[in-house]
Design a binder for these strands. Structure first.
Lengths: 166, 166
DNA sequence: CAAGATTGATTCATCAATCTTT
DNA sequence: AAAGATTGATGAATCAATCTTG
């Protein structure tokens, strides 16, 4: 019963939208698209995320799980679930369940907060540490691949364009 | 009991990765990033998708639902769930459940396939048609916003860079 | 048997409500 | 009361198994 380990972002496989306006402003103006569009951009993002997911899948991690482990590794100390939720910019309940699974798989351990008895901290296990290290190597491959696809001036130019878009 | 209507892509709020390599190749080489990186790119994609989701949310649609409706509108005829799954590049079971919800909300209707009794077709209702039209207007706003953020030469250049990345 | 759809189990995300502790 | 975590319901995605029909 091997299940899907690495999901797709919601808009994945959805970025098939043809960038045609519903109500063209000018009768027969620019029907031929001039350069990149919203959906052509998202389609590429989708491919990139897919590469990350595949790479992490090689070491048995989903991106969601990798991120939790990475945060714990960076902190180099057990973190409260609230702190993790803050770091991931996601709902607390999401972290609760993610940590549930990570704990089940032995990558993380729940430990009592020494001072605040309301709080629960997630602690990286040796297994978790090992996996996040392997995961980071996989991520680096994709990152390097991305960097190598463009020249330095191109990456600089892309950064400028991204700043205008975002 | 109003629930989340428009979800986030899985990597949303996750794109906080700092693009630093796990094992720097050179001791103290290029610590200052040269232009756009994998995660800075995905972060922008994330923002764009968020805008789409918000825009569709105004008319009560999620992106997943909008896409189904859009396909049916484009086809201008009832489509088999299999055809929809094909179009969305997603699992059939996903379509089954999406159509369940769309049917519950009265945007779509299941009709028997006239020739193949195994098949079920999804038909757009007047409500669904109305909603997808409103949704398309919302999408166009975001699309126009994207286009307006760059000059034509910039969009052309971006398209070139996207082609190299993807 | 192969193809169409459905159901069931799982991951990952949301929000609302609850429960404990400060 | 406010803050920390959990539980429950839901949306959206996957895969595996099943059921019906060609």
């Amino acid at each position: 019963m091997v299940l899907d380990e690495v999901g797709k972002p919601i808009y994945r496989s959805a970025m098939k939208q043809v960038d045609e306006v519903a109500i063209p402003l000018k009768p027969k103006a620019a029907t031929h698209e001039e350069g990149a569009t919203l959906f052509s951009f998202l389609e590429v993002a989708d491919q990139l995320f897919e590469r990350i997911s595949e790479a992490l899948g090689k070491v048995g991690l989903s991106y969601a799980k990798y991120e939790i482990l990475k945060h714990l590794q960076d902190a180099d100390a057990p973190l409260t679930l609230g702190a993790l939720a803050e770091g991931q910019h996601c709902a607390r309940s999401n972290i609760t369940q993610l940590v549930d699974r990570l704990e089940t798989e032995g990558m993380v351990r729940r430990v009592d907060d020494p001072v605040d008895r309301r709080a629960v901290r997630a602690q990286l296990t040796p297994v978790g540490l090992s996996l996040v290290q392997e995961g980071s190597i996989q991520i680096d491959v994709v990152r390097a691949q991305f960097a190598a696809a463009l020249t330095t001036p191109e990456r600089v130019e892309l950064a400028r364009l991204l700043a205008k878009i975002g």
